[in-house]
């Protein structure tokens, strides 16, 4: 089974309002994104809200376009483009947050998108815990995760938090273990 199908299948076994940590190897990055946005979210008819603090949303948009993935139900909260000064073209489904340290604003934008896309259930993808950890200390990040996941649970949304294998640390594992219901390792079989 490919990584893409494998991730989608594993997510499909979860009840709604689940929060999961998804362990990803860099080489599988786009396979995983495809498995979530194209397979899983489409099957479950979810609106997807993709929070990126790793690479500019435009790079993901470009990749999705190459993969011919329908983007009408996909929204982005981009908190990295502004500090990387790479805001050349603005996608209509993207909201920008000035910096990945503005965690409250990140939450507010997610809340806003959930309000705007009322009617359907949502999946929120946080890409990634590792890049947020570069910009924030553990204490504030833990507090953020706790608040975000509980808010999303109350809204019956799925939360998927990316955790990059290459940057694993004890701090990050501990932080995730407190808030998630399950950890999924993205791999082919």
């Amino acid at each position: 089974m490919s990584v893409t199908t494998n991730v989608a299948e594993k997510l499909l076994t979860l009840p709604e309002s689940s929060a999961v940590a998804l362990q990803i190897r860099a080489e599988h990055y786009f396979d995983v994104i495809r498995g979530i946005l194209d397979n899983f979210a489409v099957k479950k008819e979810l609106d997807s809200i993709y929070i990126t603090s790793t690479i500019p949303s435009q790079s993901i948009v470009n990749a999705l376009q190459v993969l011919e993935i329908d983007m009408s139900n996909i929204y982005f909260v981009d908190c990295i483009s502004q500090i990387m000064m790479s805001m050349a073209s603005k996608h209509e489904h993207t909201i920008y947050v000035e910096s990945p340290t503005m965690l409250e604003n990140l939450m507010l934008k997610v809340e806003y998108l959930i309000k705007r896309t009322e009617g359907k259930n949502d999946i929120i993808i946080l890409d990634s815990i590792n890049s947020l950890a570069i910009h924030n200390n553990t204490k504030i990040l833990s507090e953020f995760l706790h608040l975000l996941v509980n808010n999303l649970r109350a809204k019956k949304a799925y939360t998927v938090i990316f955790s990059m294998e290459e940057y694993r640390s004890e701090d990050i594992s501990n932080m995730l273990n407190i808030v998630v219901d399950e950890t999924i390792v993205a791999a082919g079989e």
């Binding site: 409250e104 806003y112 309000k115 200390n137 990040l141 507090e143």
Partner: peptide, 12 residues
């Protein structure tokens, strides 16, 4: 969608 609020993170 109106005024939205979230608690200020204290982060110690």
């Amino acid at each position: 969608a109106g005024v939205l609020l979230v608690p200020l993170l204290k982060g110690g």
